[in-house]
């Protein structure tokens, strides 16, 4: 992906900004402007809380290009507390500690760098919840 393609998706990548469907109330991530539940137009922004749990995970030993320096790293599907599944890396965790159902929270991290001279790509990752008792980060419609 080039610079414009990454730029276009910055809000969802940095802050998990998705959409909410006003017809059926479904929370949508990634944003797609059409509700996957009721197929109606849905383009009101909705910022997810970033809380969720691990739905599945895999630790990668043979990476695609651009991810070599991170090996081994763990990727996961996370079930967000508002409902949708999202694919992302886990971070700040040892692969052996990860398990399905593990509570996680979103953090914004470097996804990769396009070489030493190119742009730095930032985006969401998930890490084990630092503390369970904290008041959840509010989710809601973006201002």
């Amino acid at each position: 992906m080039g610079i414009p393609a990454y730029w276009r998706t910055r809000a969802q990548r940095y802050a998990l900004v998705g959409e909410v469907c006003h017809k059926c109330g479904a929370k949508i991530f990634p944003p797609r402007d059409v509700c996957p539940e009721c197929s109606r137009p849905a383009s009101d922004p909705f910022t997810f809380s970033g809380r969720g749990e691990v739905y599945s995970f895999s630790t990668i030993y043979q990476p695609p290009e651009g991810f070599e320096e991170f090996v081994p790293y763990t990727v996961a599907i996370v079930k967000l507390e508002e409902g949708p599944l999202v694919t992302a890396q886990l971070t700040d965790v040892d692969p052996a500690e990860v398990h399905i159902g593990m509570p996680v929270e979103m953090v914004t991290r470097k996804l990769r760098e396009e070489g030493e001279e190119g742009q730095i790509i930032y985006g969401y990752k998930f890490r084990p919840l630092l503390r369970n008792t904290l008041t959840p980060r509010p989710s809601g419609q973006a201002a």
Partner: peptide, 23 residues
């Protein structure tokens, strides 16, 4: 795979199948 929402996160095609297998 999805070039906006899967591969930018470092997923290989094998790992996508691995996510299925684990679950």
């Amino acid at each position: 795979a999805d070039a906006d929402y899967e591969t930018p996160h470092g997923l290989s095609f094998v790992s996508i199948n691995a996510l299925l297998m684990r679950r």
